[in-house]
Design a protein around this nucleic acid. Structure first.
Length: 891
RNA sequence: GCCCAAGUGGUGGAAUGGUAGACGCGUCGGAUUCAAAAUCCGAUUCCUUAACGGGAGUGUGGGUUCAAGUCCCACCUUGGGCACCA
């Protein structure tokens, strides 16, 4: 009898699938298609367990759909532009292109052994000129349709390196390399008009029934539709009125000042005054992220400008405040400190008045240090409302205020969105060049389509900060496509989010001479199942939804593909324990001598153990070796631990602390390399494990013991199949029982696969394997059950399934065999066991025929000894019988 | 700071509002073996009891319900996102 040899069978079956081209996707009109897509990876060069989990999930779906008769498209590519390649070029030399393509080769090599059902012939990288050339064509089409435009926007500026920084390159308000304080600087940049589609993108979320509710909620909040009042404050000095937008116009009576953004025209007009400039410099310091702005210290500057309150005519001061964004609303607000914590903090700091406009119904205490911010749906008592309200909800008050303002003509109800236009310009080399030329005479001129792709030059260097394209005259200086005079290419490249916003469409026709091919797009779109991390819940998915719409406008996608992802699944991370000990620095250590620091140990350097309470700890393999112990001999190791006693200080073994479930990170030495795992156990074990231990949407902790257990189980399944004796006799009752269990397994596993309950499906498969192993059924019946088991395991462990299928005489490839269908008649049981509760506490259990009358069930339940005892002689007040489920007696 | 999730035995986790802890790991006991590996069988939430039983229990505190891990409110902790990381 042969033993389970994963390395051997996996290589063989992968060859067999390749030879039969089972995963090559061709359009077959009339055959139902299924497009499954996992978010493509960034080519870091190292495959990560998180990738394995992501692709395995997609693979389970893809393989399941193949066996249910679908024509499956399951492609893979690389999101290959971006900063890491430039960083590598700066750090270790070389060219981003070489670095990236080498990494892609390595990752493909690491992915292939996983046995994924991918159509590799469709593979591309976004840095292929064939891909980004088509992206440039899309850009030109968008430009023509008015979906792209230029305006000024703020970037992080490093004044020492004289370069633009990404948000992640700003650490604590300073540039990551120079350490200089980062400034906000305005540049003219390209934007996609995503805000034009804000309402559409929001409304269409309703139709996405197979998207996680949390993702839709996050997108809805991000788009942020709000109805408010827009009106102007007249300036006392007669200058241009200040337009403000507010979602709480009902609190206008509580206004204590008008706040404007540091980038507001009024603030800009005051530049040149030393005091103002000093303040603006302070207000503009720090990063551009919303987080940085919201958490920065609130700073204000009194402009001296006064405005008139539109209702009371009272004078209000105008302050510049660093937390007001120019991009949202009008860049100016009125502050109502009594009902907004941020405004309150600001007013207390600068000694501005706080005016209560309403109180809670049961509390009339004025606001002191905590703003009173009830929900808009809550009723409050107004101090003196200009529209005469006494008790009303915020919502009602807002509407009344807007109506009044419109009737009196001093303001207007306006719907606004939080969503800003998508800035796509990046002052970097390794990205898709923006295909326009700047001409002194003609202005911004689009490249001619026949000149595409505008290819990145190879002869660049990264020895100085800034964009190499800027200092590359032969690439940059070109004749104007319109008038032919000397002109300059746009040297900004595109945000890498652009690259990932349409790759799913390109996969339907990766070699087309246009961005897409309509016939292919019509056949393959939409993506039936999209799988990736929650970290992409907002930006990537929103941009892709925008792109699909924009591509439709330009005729690159059919109307039906405007919402490109029919179903979305967001999977969790793969985590791993950290093994740490406290070490002391040695003589001559630059940190100083004898200082304690945390030392992280690699998983393959340690042996994980459990003490008598089951608590996890670990010891170093090197320590075990030193005292001559075998790491596999847990009993001896434990004995040594007992000898060492409770006092670890004097022990021969170093006790390592085990920190569970930490994100895998190089600096913590807790990364598990899939390649090592595949070499040790095989791809099927890795696939089985990443699916088995946690629900797919949650994080899964990679543990060595879990991986070993997975491998042990797969070996067991192989052995059970290999040892089957088809001629063995059995009882008809056992045959029947096994058949019933088989169909229950088919039902449960199918349900698990279809509903992304992979861990539950695997639990059923464990149970079914145990049933099969213990069954007294005859050989023939067992063989049929084992064949079904192989089929049910096939999406998760395809290589093992093929081997068992072949061993048991299955016809053709297991991968192509039709998925088994559960016979409903075999699923029903004729009797059912019901718990009996008294006052919600379980006291007994009764087994009754499935369709027994409620009254009969009640009688049987009350007759139970334990129920009588619990009732203690009292008559039940009420008896609830839920047929087939439970009996609850209320005493 | 704002938005969104998640918290269940020693451990990963299971549970259409209906028996909390399926299945796996670990631990303990047993079988097999000269011995081991491998394999197989059994026990395993906590407290209490000789036992039968009894009590408590799903991050914390309230609430709705015949019945709450599940629904509602408040809080705590952890994770994700915050527009130039991908």
């Amino acid at each position: 009898m042969s033993r389970y040899n994963a390395a051997e069978i996996e290589a063989n079956w992968q060859k067999a699938w390749d030879k039969a081209e089972v995963f090559k996707a061709e359009r077959i009109e009339g055959k139902p298609k299924y497009y499954v897509l996992e978010m493509f990876p960034y080519p870091s060069g190292k495959l990560h367990m998180g990738h394995v989990r992501n692709y395995t999930m997609g693979d389970v779906i893809a393989r399941y759909k193949i066996s249910t008769g679908h024509n499956v498209l399951h492609p893979m590519g690389f999101d290959a532009f971006g900063m890491p390649a430039e960083n590598a070029a700066m750090a270790i030399g070389g060219h981003p292109k070489t670095w990236t393509y080498n990494n892609i080769d390595q990752m493909v090599e690491q992915m292939k052994p996983l046995g994924l059902s991918l159509d590799w012939s469709r593979m591309f990288a976004t840095c292929d000129p064939e891909y980004y050339g088509q992206q440039q064509a899309l850009f030109l089409d968008f430009l023509q349709e008015g979906l792209v435009y230029r305006k000024n926007a703020i970037v992080n500026w490093d004044p020492v390196d004289m370069t633009v920084l990404a948000n992640e390159q700003v650490e604590g308000g300073r540039g990551w390399r120079s350490g200089a304080l980062v400034e906000r600087k305005e540049l003219t940049q390209w934007f996609f008009k995503i805000s034009d589609m804000a309402d559409e993108l929001l409304g269409a979320l309703d139709g996405l029934d197979n998207w996680p509710a949390k993702v839709k909620l996050m997108q809805a909040n991000w788009i942020g539709k709000s109805r408010g009042l827009q009106f102007a404050f007249e300036r006392v000095d007669g200058g241009e009125a200040i337009s403000v937008y507010t979602t709480r116009p009902d609190t206008l009576n509580g206004a204590s000042f008008v706040g404007i953004s540091p980038d507001h025209p009024i603030a800009k007009a005051m530049e040149g005054d030393a005091e103002v400039d000093a303040f603006l410099a302070k207000a503009r310091a720090g990063g551009t992220t919303e987080e940085a702005i919201e958490t920065a210290e609130k700073l204000g500057f009194d402009t001296g400008v006064k405005v008139k309150h539109p209702l009371t005519g009272e004078e209000l001061p105008v302050w510049i405040a660093n937390f007001i964004l120019m991009e949202y609303g009008t860049g100016a607000i009125f502050a109502c400190p009594a009902h907004d914590q941020r405004d309150l903090d600001f007013c207390r700091k600068y000694d501005l008045p706080v005016i209560d406009t309403f109180f809670a119904l049961d509390d009339g205490a004025p606001v002191t240090t905590e703003a009173f911010v009830p929900m808009k749906s809550e009723k409050v008592r107004w101090v003196e409302h200009f529209a005469g309200l006494d008790v009303a909800t915020g919502e009602e008050a807002i509407n009344v205020t807007i109506d009044k303002a419109e009737a009196e003509g001093w303001g207007e109800g306006v719907t606004k969105f939080r969503l800003r236009d998508w800035g796509l310009s990046r002052q970097r080399y390794w990205g898709c060049p923006i295909p326009v030329v700047h001409c002194d005479d003609c202005g911004v001129v689009p490249e001619k389509k026949e000149n595409l792709p505008i290819v990145l030059p190879d002869d660049v260097s990264f020895d100085q900060p800034g964009n190499p394209l800027d200092r590359h005259p032969t690439w940059r200086d070109v004749p104007c496509p319109s008038c032919g005079k000397p002109a300059k290419r746009e040297t900004d490249t595109m945000d890498t989010f652009v690259d990932s916003s349409w790759y799913f469409a390109r996969f339907t026709a990766p070699n087309a001479a246009t961005p897409t091919n309509m016939a292919d797009a019509e056949y393959w779109m939409n993506v039936d199942q999209y799988i990736g991390g929650v970290e992409h819940a907002i930006l990537h998915l929103l941009y892709a939804r925008f792109f699909a719409r924009a591509m439709h406008v330009c005729g690159h996608l059919p109307e039906s593909a405007k919402e490109p992802f029919d179903a979305l699944f967001t999977q969790g991370m793969v985590t791993h324990a950290i093994y740490q000990s406290v070490a002391r620095t040695k003589q001559g250590d630059p940190r100083g001598e004898g200082i304690g620091y945390t030392k992280y140990h690699y998983p393959d350097e340690v042996k994980e153990l459990h003490d008598l309470d089951g608590e996890k700890y670990a010891v170093l393999l090197a320590d075990l070796e030193a005292i001559g112990l075998d790491a596999e001999d847990s009993a001896s190791v434990n004995r040594q631990r007992m000898v060492d006693g409770a006092n670890w200080e004097n022990a021969k073994l170093t006790k390592l602390e085990v920190i569970p479930s930490a994100k895998m990170s190089k600096s913590k030495n807790n990364v598990v390399d899939p390649v090592t795992i595949i070499e040790a156990f095989g791809a099927d074990t890795a696939r089985w494990f990443v699916l088995s231990d946690s629900p797919p949407e949650r994080d899964v902790e990679w543990t060595a013991s879990g991986a070993e257990a997975a491998h042990k189980h797969l070996s067991r399944v192989y052995r059970i199949a290999a040892e089957l004796d088809a001629g063995e006799a059995g009882s008809p009752e056992a045959d029947e029982q096994l058949l019933r269990e088989t169909h229950k397994a088919i039902h449960d596993v199918t349900l698990g696969v279809e509903s992304f309950g992979f861990n539950a499906a695997i639990a059923k498969l464990y149970g079914f394997t145990n049933t099969l192993a213990k069954s007294k059924a005859g050989g023939a019946a067992k063989r049929d059950a084992a064949k079904t088991l192989a089929q049910l395991m096939s999406p998760m462990t395809p290589h093992l399934a093929e081997s068992i299928w072949e061993m048991l005489g299955g016809e053709g490839l297991c991968t192509l065999a039709p998925w088994p269908v559960a016979d409903e008649a075999l699923l029903v049981e004729d009797s059912v066991t019901m718990p009996v509760q008294v006052n919600g506490k379980r006291r007994a259990e009764i087994t009754v025929p499935k369709d027994m009358d409620k009254a009969e069930v009640e009688k049987l339940a009350l007759a139970e000894h334990a129920v009588q005892r619990a009732l203690d002689g009292n008559a039940p007040k009420k008896v609830i019988v839920v047929p087939g489920r439970i009996v609850n007696v209320v005493a």
